[in-house]
Amino acid sequence: MSEYERSRTMPALPEHIFDQASQVRRLDSWLPSELHVKAEDLPAVTVHEDTTGEDAAALFRAQPERLRLEWGTRDSHGYAGWLQVVDAGSGSSEVTVHLSFFDERHDPGADTVRSALEDSLARLEEQVRLRVDNGG
């Protein structure tokens, strides 16, 4: 099993970040660009990966009361992940993304995953900034 985690402090209220991150129709704006999520009957979703051309049955759950997202493969134990937003004070928040790969065949490697997590957090911060700057 491989596990990866990255955090980033963002200059926005936790609720604004969670609202941006948790909407399925907006996931493509901050997830790695090769991943595309299509909602089915939530929590069921399908994740399309451009690099392989494959679709994977997955689950996506938002827990607004905890400012937490959880996801993972639906029919196998390939991977799971979560995103947690916490108030960091003074109008900022800390966002942590965690990925666990239970099946090594799903793990693209430490450098690739770490880079993807950093890029995703940067993209999420940019989407939140654009949304807040444009009045929500």
Rank of each mutant, 00 (worst) to 15 (best):
M1N: 05
M1S: 11
S2F: 06
S2L: 01
Y4H: 07
Y4M: 02
Y4S: 02
R6W: 00
S7A: 12
S7E: 08
T9Q: 08
P11T: 04
P11G: 03
P11V: 02
P14G: 08
E15S: 12
H16M: 08
H16S: 14
F18Q: 09
D19W: 08
Q23A: 12
Q23C: 08
R25G: 02
R26G: 01
R26C: 02
L27M: 15
D28K: 15
L31Y: 14
L31S: 08
L31C: 06
P32L: 09
P32T: 10
P32K: 11
P32E: 09
S33V: 13
S33I: 07
E34I: 06
L35R: 01
H36D: 07
H36F: 12
V37R: 09
K38R: 15
K38L: 14
A39N: 05
A39S: 10
E40L: 12
E40Y: 01
D41N: 13
P43Y: 06
A44Y: 11
V45T: 02
T46A: 09
H48Q: 02
H48P: 00
E49G: 06
D50I: 13
G53F: 13
E54C: 00
A56L: 12
A56W: 05
A56N: 04
A56P: 00
A56G: 04
A57K: 15
F60Y: 15
F60M: 12
R61C: 09
R61Q: 13
R61V: 14
Q63E: 07
P64T: 01
P64G: 01
R66D: 14
R68L: 14
L69G: 07
E70Y: 03
G72S: 05
T73P: 04
R74P: 01
D75S: 10
G78H: 04
Y79V: 09
G81S: 03
L83V: 14
L83Y: 05
Q84V: 09
V85C: 11
V85K: 02
V86R: 14
A88Q: 07
G89T: 04
G89V: 10
G91R: 01
G91H: 03
G91M: 07
G91A: 06
S92N: 04
S93A: 14
E94K: 15
T96H: 13
T96K: 14
H98K: 11
H98Q: 11
L99G: 00
S100A: 10
S100T: 11
F102C: 04
F102T: 08
F102N: 08
E104H: 05
R105H: 09
H106W: 15
H106Q: 15
D107A: 04
G109T: 07
G109V: 06
A110G: 03
D111E: 15
T112W: 12
R114V: 03
L117P: 06
L117R: 05
D119L: 12
D119N: 10
S120N: 00
L121I: 13
A122F: 02
R123F: 10
L124V: 08
E126P: 00
E126V: 00
Q127E: 15
Q127K: 11
V128H: 06
R129W: 01
R129C: 01
R129T: 08
L130V: 06
L130S: 05
L130M: 04
R131I: 01
V132K: 08
V132E: 03
V132Q: 03
V132D: 03
D133S: 11
D133N: 11
D133G: 13
N134T: 14
G135C: 13
G136T: 13
